[in-house]
């Protein structure tokens, strides 16, 4: 067996394991990391539900990367978004705008959206649709997802909006 030692930071916490080199990052996150928010939805690298962020804000399909390739790197998953029970502006926006139904695509969708806003803090509707075109959703028809990203963009650009909403 081709076992390798793999160690990476997932959401700031070091996760280590001896796994076969053929283990995909998605499975490492779920099984070694115990974090099941990262979903696997297809066998063809085409749905994007497994999307996580690599070393900051690079979105990658964790089903199309071997865990060992992420050795020594930092991974961000959906579990890191809410802090102290308070939803991330992206999560709040998906909630407010009904950006999800079954929720299966939502972790990948939100992480892709966060990466998109990092690259382009004020995207047009067209840019949002293009930017999220690697993430499939079989439920919502996308309109509310686009609205959610628009809301999140507004809030993330003007944090005082979020503070006001809390009052």
């Amino acid at each position: 067996m081709n076992e390798v030692n793999v160690s990476m930071k997932i959401n700031g916490k070091t996760v280590t394991g001896s796994v076969e080199s053929r283990v995909l990052l998605a499975h490492f996150i779920r099984e070694q990391g115990g974090l099941t928010g990262t979903h696997v939805g297809c066998d063809s690298s085409s749905c994007g539900v497994c999307t996580v962020l690599l070393d900051g804000y690079t979105p990658v399909k964790s089903c199309t990367m071997y865990a060992v390739m992420a050795d020594g790197h930092e991974i961000t998953t959906v579990e890191s978004l809410a802090v102290g029970g308070k939803l991330h502006p992206m999560q709040q926006a998906f909630w407010d705008q009904h950006g999800l139904q079954c929720g299966y695509c939502t972790p990948g969708m939100m992480l892709s959206s966060i990466a998109l806003l990092k690259q382009n803090p004020n995207p047009t509707e067209h840019e949002i649709r293009e930017g999220l075109s690697g993430n499939l959703c079989r439920c919502t028809g996308y309109n509310n997802i686009v609205k959610a990203v628009q809301q999140a963009a507004q809030v993330m650009n003007q944090p005082e909006l979020a503070a006001a909403a809390d009052d």
Binding site: V60, K61, L116, L132, N135
Partner: peptide, 12 residues
């Protein structure tokens, strides 16, 4: 570069 694969695939 805007139409190869999809935006996530293009990051790798």
């Amino acid at each position: 570069s805007a139409v190869v694969a999809d935006p996530i695939v293009r990051h790798m």
